[in-house]
Amino acid sequence: MEFRYEHADTLYTVQLEPQPDGSYLATVGDRTYTVTLQRAQSGQFNLLLDGKRLHAYVAHQKNQQTATTYHYVALVDRTARHYELTTARPTASRRGGSSAQAGSLRSQMPGQVMQIFVQEGQQVEKGQNLLTLEAMKMEIRVTAPADGTITRIYVQQGETVERGQQLIEID
């Protein structure tokens, strides 16, 4: 079976072929590994990868709004790491609307718009304070990434915004 993942705009393909002895042959790119599962239950694996011991925890969840499935992996050993991947989107829809557009500022966190300091049509300088967001009792300033003109303000004071929601457009 083939599984395709995406991370930082790079595609990764994993082939898993069950073997008669209960192990799997795993292929990532041009590398092939023998995977022996010693214990596998509810997202927790004790396995041998070409004889090397590995403890892994995995979970995944589909974000209904963006229709993207996120995969989370924790490898627990002396150099433990957590990873976040997404299921690769079909090539046709890649580079679709979800990446940041030039001149369009999006909220990096869910929160509430506390104050808006600019108006449509206003000239702004790089670094100028455009609005403040509040979440978890913290204030986050959204500043102009470059000099330009405010062409559109999508939000109002007091409005609750989601992560990734468009806030302001600068030309």
Partner: peptide
């Protein structure tokens, strides 16, 4: 974070997670 690209081990674990689920 020290390293950003997913290791082969991480990718295989993710795939096993889907397959075995």
């Amino acid at each position: 974070p020290p390293e950003d690209t997913p290791s082969d081990a991480a990718l295989i674990a993710a795939a096993l997670g889907e397959l075995l689920q």
